[in-house]
Simulated scan of single mutants.
Amino acid sequence: MTTIVYKIVPTTLWQDARESGEFKGASIDLTDGFIHLSTAQQAKATAALYFRGQQGLLLVAIDAGKLGDRLVFEASRDGALFPHLYGSLDFEAVLWEKPLSVRPDGTHDFPELAA
């Protein structure tokens, strides 16, 4: 069984990364020294806290098993263990990319997420 982790990312940043062949992260990731990811259980809360009302976002599903020991689960918000990727994201680990549409209340519509 594949363990999946998720990244919420602006579409334009993701497209630029695809063109360059490497995703190094968003500005917060670069500042913190790792790429912030979420589990299926964490993704909606992450979107609500950090991306509320933002349009032009993608939800990217990533095969955690393909990230090796660069993926570390570390205590973060409220002590929960969040996946952090140390290093760039290899596109061969990406399972799919889907747009996140914004509802009138500022929350996002999510596809069904696998854990």
Rank of each mutant, 00 (worst) to 15 (best):
Met1Thr: 14
Thr3Met: 13
Lys7Asn: 04
Ile8Pro: 02
Ile8Cys: 01
Val9Ser: 01
Val9Thr: 09
Thr12Glu: 14
Trp14Asn: 00
Trp14Leu: 01
Gln15Ser: 07
Arg18Phe: 04
Glu19Trp: 02
Ser20Val: 07
Gly21Thr: 06
Glu22Tyr: 14
Ala26Tyr: 04
Ala26Gln: 11
Leu30Ser: 02
Thr31His: 09
Thr31Lys: 14
Gly33Tyr: 06
Gly33Arg: 07
Phe34His: 13
Ser38Arg: 07
Ser38Leu: 05
Ala40Gln: 07
Gln41Asp: 11
Ala45Val: 13
Ala48Arg: 15
Arg52Asn: 12
Gln54Lys: 15
Gln55Gly: 10
Leu58Ile: 00
Leu59Trp: 10
Val60Gly: 00
Ile62Asn: 05
Asp63Trp: 08
Lys66Val: 00
Leu67Cys: 11
Asp69Ile: 02
Asp69Gly: 02
Arg70Ile: 00
Phe73Cys: 00
Glu74Gly: 05
Ala75Leu: 03
Ser76Cys: 00
Ser76Arg: 06
Phe82Arg: 14
Pro83Asp: 06
Pro83Lys: 06
His84Gln: 12
Leu85Gln: 08
Tyr86Cys: 03
Gly87Ser: 08
Leu89His: 10
Glu92Lys: 13
Val94Ile: 15
Glu97Gly: 02
Leu100Ser: 02
Ser101Gly: 01
Pro104Glu: 13
Asp105Cys: 12
Thr107Lys: 13
Thr107Gly: 03
Phe110Lys: 08
Glu112Gly: 09
Glu112His: 13
Leu113His: 08
Ala114Tyr: 08
Ala115Gln: 14
